[in-house]
Design a protein around this nucleic acid. Sequence first.
DNA 1: TTGTCGATTGAG
DNA 2: TCAATCGACAAT
Length: 227
Amino acid sequence: MDRVSNRAQRVMVARDQLAGPALEVAPKLLGATVVSEVGGERVVVRITEVEAYEGQDDPASHAFRGPTKRNAVMFGEAGHLYCYFIYGMHWCANITCQRSGTAGAVLLRAADIAEGEPAARDRTARAAPGRTATAVPAGKLASGPARLARSLGLTGSHTGLDLLSDDSPVRLTMLDPPTDYRAGPRVGIAVAAEHPWRFWLPDAASVSAYRPGGRKRLASRRQTGQP
DNA sequence: TTGTCGATTGAG
DNA sequence: TCAATCGACAAT
């Protein structure tokens, strides 16, 4: 088989692996590699922590209430990038899954930096000018979804990129799924927090800390008149 | 058009 | 423990 067909074959296999429910796809992404050549800087990471977000059955998913301008890419073909803006200051990156017409995505929560640590460090320093641009441990540069997206230089302008295309400045390479990983509740969400839909590699330094979600308690407190 | 809230982070 | 800070979306 010639080189081009080999490549096409690899893409087909990867696309197929991503074309299922987020819950099944998420653990397969542990250990996978993301190459970012955004902004003229090359950063390569190995994914160590992810969360599954299903579509219209998952109240914590952006796709829960159906397609909108923001979440449109979640309803498209698997293997594309979905970046969203949160808390007025952070970007977070997802890889879409499922087949066209059905929403699903996997949030990238943490990664080890395999290449381009200086660039990731620069971006961290630039994000907090005048602040403690001092030694952030290498293992923490991409620990947490916003820090990971920042290390890779990803923003909303990159939403929709095909991570399986050789022409894309951001690319995903899937490896053999890991045999050893952990699962637990998703971080920071106020609804459907009971599902163990967060997956991580047990010995990775970059895995982020668990924080339960907030807010919802305030709303229910207001409704019930509880102090 | 307005008000509420968030898949977070970093400082105090 | 809390503020920062703004886009998306639901409720007017």
